[in-house]
Design a protein around this nucleic acid. Sequence first.
DNA 1: CTCGCCACCTGGGGGC
DNA 2: TGCCCCCAGGTGGCGA
Length: 269
Amino acid sequence: MPELPEVEVTRRGLAPDLVGCRLTGTVVRNPALRFPVTPALDSLVGQDLLGLGRRGKYLLFEFDAGSLIVHLGMSGSLRLLSAATPAEKHDHVDLVFGERVVRLRDPRRFGAVLWQPGRAEDHPLLAGLGPEPLSEVLDGPWLYQATRNRSAPIKQVLMDARTLVGVGNIYASESLFRAGIDPRTSARCLGRVRCARLAQAVRDTLEAALVAGGSTLRDFIRSDGSSGYFQLQHFVYGREGEPCRVCGAPIRCLRQGNRSSFYCSRCQR
DNA sequence: CTCGCCACCTGGGGGC
DNA sequence: TGCCCCCAGGTGGCGA
């Protein structure tokens, strides 16, 4: 489900209403997410939320003693609701802030809710992550250097969080289309020019998706319950057989690492 | 190291 | 209708 734009849209939707508020309760209806939900969420009750951060696709609820790390997996969403709203199926975890509640819904239960004392970046899941794609770091020279000893297809290297965080299956396909690069190209075969084009394409794609509120295909909804609409602007993702928006050739689909990759064989070489 | 593949889990859609 | 198989936005962990 959520890639960087969807997670960031969620963060921006929640932060203005929650930062500075006191956590007054927690509810764990089903702790069996990808990892067991951190026991004793209760110990956070009474603490003030100092900030709501993000690292890659992880949301960081920052308290004085550490951070509650939340990952939305494939099908997770966080909504801000009245605390009186009845929970429904797949509503696994609540963070209650007085009259309001942040509710995690995650049908597939690939998400995670983990407590990390101290600095969130010290958590083992976050420690090995690559740089943020919307930071100053991502540019042509950096991408060129980062791909030199990577023989895997560029699509899979883009989706590897140790290379770069935040780019998942949708935005990898979309970024490669915008850069005019075939997703099967070995990463190390990209020259400086194509690396520069791809770095810019990743930034442009993620920023355009952010502006559109992310992509809503199945499960993703914003914290206020509304949908993102970037899916209406997808050039290739989910468009197999439909005409390329640039050249009209039919969009093709192939499997890479057991994931679908969509591309235009005329625009991408 | 890196790569390629499997696993986790539920639900929706298509084909028969 | 019902059943079965495939597919889905992520990513840790395994063996090669």
